[in-house]
């Protein structure tokens, strides 16, 4: 009886991180896939409505209204990807898990700007800022929570 209990305990100690990682891989993966899907449909819906870093206004049309617009998002990695990133830190190289996270965050931030003014025609002078705002688990090596801030001037032409 006691042996059985000890065995279960030992197994838990060794298997728990693996189980957690597996769970995070499945759930985190599902969430990411759903998010990307939503981003793609919304981007397609806003395809006529660009956000550009230049001041590219259509010379043939008269500007009716221009406003500052900002949107931000704070993101963090799931447990599984955090393990990958931690191992990556030893060997160096491209960190795919962060790339997908930051790509998602940026596209989401730009979409949020557009969604604030869905009737406008474009966003000019757009800037994107990424900053680490802290570590999620309080450890020095922990994955940072990252804020992506998008700013720009939203422009609506006179009809």
């Amino acid at each position: 009886m006691e042996e059985d209990f000890n065995l279960v305990l030992v197994l838990l100690i060794y298997a728990l991180p693996v189980l957690l990682a597996l769970m995070a891989f499945v759930i985190g993966g599902l969430i990411e896939r759903a998010h990307f899907k939503s981003i793609r449909t919304r981007e397609a819906a806003f395809a006529h409505y660009p956000a550009v870093p230049t001041c590219s206004l259509d010379g043939d049309r008269v500007v009716g209204e221009a406003r500052l617009v900002t949107a931000s998002i704070v993101v963090s990695l799931d447990y599984f990807k955090r393990i990958l990133a931690a191992f990556r830190n030893v060997f160096g190289g491209r960190v795919r898990s962060y790339e997908s996270l930051l790509d998602r965050a940026k596209r989401e931030a730009i979409l949020r700007m557009k969604e604030q003014y869905p009737e406008a025609d474009l966003i000019v002078n757009m800037r994107i800022n990424t900053s680490q705002i802290g570590t999620t688990d309080g450890r020095k090596k922990g994955m940072g929570a990252v804020e992506v801030l998008a700013t720009g001037t939203v422009v609506r032409y006179q009809s």
Binding site: F25, G29, R33, F36, K81, L84, R96, S97, Y98, E99, S100, L101, L102, D103, R104
Partner: peptide, 10 residues
């Protein structure tokens, strides 16, 4: 291009 390669990439 920058989306990390999806599940296969992971």
């Amino acid at each position: 291009n920058s989306s990390g390669g999806g599940t296969r990439g992971t």
